[in-house]
Simulated assay, not measured.
Amino acid sequence: MTSSAALTRIRKRHYALETLPDTIVVPLLGETRSEQAIKPIEEATLDDIAFALLGVEAEFSAVGDRLHALRKLYGLARQAGARGSECALGVVSRDQGKR
């Protein structure tokens, strides 16, 4: 069985692995690795996956931070009485003095 066939089989057998990527990005590792590496998932060691997880978790955290900031801005604008066609940032900045 080829490695790509094995990957296909694993994706079908485990629903949580359906979105398993074909490749992973192993980030910089200080002096050990001066460049990020892109590796096929079939060649990834457990350490490669552990380091790739650090990069993905940082991306996930950044997206979560943006999501929460946008939700907060939206909520503050609505609390200040903003309507859908108004500039949220403008309404919130005008309303700041009232809080």
Rank of each mutant, 00 (worst) to 15 (best):
R11A: 09
G30I: 02
S4M: 10
A77I: 00
R66N: 07
I24T: 00
P27I: 04
V92M: 10
E57Y: 09
A6G: 09
A50R: 11
A88W: 11
A82L: 04
G84T: 08
S85R: 15
F60K: 13
A37Y: 00
Q96N: 01
L53I: 14
E59Q: 13
A50Y: 14
T8P: 00
A37G: 01
C87I: 07
E31V: 13
E31W: 07
A37F: 00
L28N: 14
D65C: 06
Y15G: 08
T32F: 11
K39L: 15
R83W: 07
G30Y: 02
V56H: 04
T19A: 13
G64A: 15
A44S: 06
G64W: 09
V63E: 10
P21C: 08
L53T: 12
P21R: 08
A50G: 12
L17N: 02
V26G: 03
R78D: 04
I10G: 06
A52G: 06
A16M: 05
R33D: 06
T32D: 12
E43I: 00
A52P: 00
G64Y: 04
Q96C: 05
T19R: 13
A58D: 02
A58V: 03
R66Q: 14
G90Q: 10
S93N: 10
G81Q: 05
F51Q: 14
Y15V: 15
A69L: 11
L73G: 03
A77G: 14
A80D: 01
R94H: 07
P21D: 04
L20F: 07
E43N: 03
A44Y: 05
E43S: 07
R9F: 07
E86C: 02
R71A: 15
E31P: 01
L28P: 08
S85L: 14
R78S: 10
E59T: 04
K72N: 07
V92C: 09
T8K: 14
K39Y: 08
T45A: 03
R71C: 09
T23R: 02
A16N: 04
I24Y: 00
R11S: 13
E86P: 05
I41V: 13
K98Q: 13
T32S: 10
G90M: 08
K72F: 03
G64V: 06
K98T: 14
D65H: 08
